[in-house]
Write a protein that binds this DNA or RNA. Structure first.
Lengths: 211, 211
DNA sequence: AGTCTTATTTTGACGCTGTCAAGATATGTG
DNA sequence: CACATATCTTGACAGCGTCAAAATAAGACT
């Protein structure tokens, strides 16, 4: 009885699209799942608690996501979109030197990881990538992001910002590896803390760029 | 019946030390746990399967380790010891330039991670460090390892191998961050693969060292 | 209109997990 | 030989992901 009434409230609030039973379960799940991810991490995000919190039975989510992995991939997709837009915005800025832009990109990358540690862990962690469990949809969004890293590195080399002697792919792997490594040290709570972000970024940019 | 006989066999095989019921449960658990970690990862290592494999009941391990976390920390301790000895060995070598030694250290670090991905994930992953769940014993072994990284960086600066202009701590964080990042990219199966280890290491060493 | 198909959700169940409480058993000590 | 203690087992609980089958609601078709 209680349950039905609370369910109805949810339905009404999501009635803008007004379709089936719940109205818009899939996006409701995604929304709540993102919130749960933020404060509980991947481990803390359980399908049962998620369903309970949205107001449906434990197995209802399975009609919108094949399993937990698919839900996680869907969340990661949104993360990559947000992340891509962010990078795009930084590089379309004008009135800055290449080095300044790179510095800002570097700092933005670390900053995003520090502010959204669980999302970063999901996007670039082993849960998804280790045993090739990424959805095709996710791959279609993530792979170009990785590729873009190489293209930008090539541009930086051509602009004289980075050493042209190094192989582009290796240089991209090393520079991104550095960003990724610092990000992970931060979000995994080991050997580095938030107060040193700016200094670490400045140090890394100094080492990687000329003039 | 079957169970008892198999138990006896295990007891006899470990009877070298011949003490209590099992003989040497703690180290048997550690040994088997390390093996299970290697092929199943942290997730695949379950206390119940571990106990079963060693031939004791599900809760027997709890008399030697407070909980799963404590078992993981004990395994990680062994990892740090092995890792420390390895680094020591490399740096005590003679007849090499500083750069050559650093190169070898870098390659050794990545190599260790690539060959023992699950151990590396345990030692430097969020499972242990994220929510301060590290044992005091583990801290006593791990923290000096981190500190040593800074001391070595200082030495490298003094030897003229690395830029003396950068703050030592920041430089240590960035260079170790790079190693850590490349290691993670490798073991998490994202953006880099084993065939490129040598080239990536050479590239990174070029960027970080002079002459 | 009413029937039929299909999409959605629920209830029940299974095996797995970590871990606690209580009892059984073996070991070393007095 | 008795006692205390360390060790191990059995039973139990709550939580997890997920499958199968039943219930329900929505839309399509005649």
């Amino acid at each position: 009885m209680q349950k039905k009434s609370s369910k109805k409230i949810i339905k009404e609030s999501a009635a803008t699209k007004g379709s089936y039973h719940h109205g818009d379960l899939r996006s409701s799940l995604l929304e709540t799942a993102k919130a749960m991810l933020s404060d509980g991490g991947i481990e803390g995000l359980s399908l049962r608690k998620l369903a309970d919190r949205v107001g449906v039975s434990r197995t209802a989510p399975y009609h919108h996501f094949k399993d937990k992995n698919e839900l996680l991939c869907a969340i990661a997709e949104e993360g990559f979109e947000h992340w891509h837009n962010n990078a795009e915005r930084i590089f379309s800025q004008t009135g800055m030197t290449s080095k300044q832009k790179y510095h800002q990109f570097f700092q933005g990358y670390i900053g995003y990881a520090a502010e959204n540690p669980e999302m970063y862990d999901l996007m670039f962690g082993r849960t998804i990538w280790k045993q090739n469990s990424a959805t095709n949809d996710l791959r279609d969004i993530a792979y170009p992001s990785f590729q873009r890293q190489v293209e930008m590195t090539k541009k930086w080399q051509e602009q004289g910002l980075m050493s042209a002697e190094e192989d582009t792919l290796r240089l991209a792997q090393v520079t991104w590896g550095t960003m990724h490594g610092i990000a992970r040290l931060l979000i995994d709570g080991i050997y580095a803390d938030r107060n040193h972000i700016d200094e670490m970024c400045a140090c890394a940019v100094n080492l990687f760029t000329r003039e």
